[in-house]
Amino acid sequence: MQKFALDAKDVVEGKTSVVEVSGTEIGIALHQGKYYAYHNICPHQGGPVCEGMQMPRVTGEFTDSGSFDRHNFDTSEMHLVCPWHGWEFDVSTGEAIGDRSIKLKSFPVSQRDGKLYVEL
């Protein structure tokens, strides 16, 4: 069933908004124009995964000869970082970066008249 979550204007890129919908805490994130909604429970030890920082994927770059060059941030892939132990999850898929078979519980999001609804 679709339930009202919050106004779209209250969700900004880079910061997850956490709301309670019918007793379930849900984090809503905006990335590259699309909204994503996840249950605010981390599959690791149950931390409030949506309340942590959003961080871009960290990449490592090396030269043609194979020498390490530098680290970088790849902002095309943003991560939800669980504040309890730092597990990171891809905002656009909910997958854990260290093991993509582990996923956050996601909810479909739709937008109507500037309002966001989640399917519970």
Binding site: K15, G52, M53, F73
Partner: peptide
Amino acid sequence: QTAVNTPAQAD
């Protein structure tokens, strides 16, 4: 430098 969140900005 790529702009990223500091803890206080992010939360």
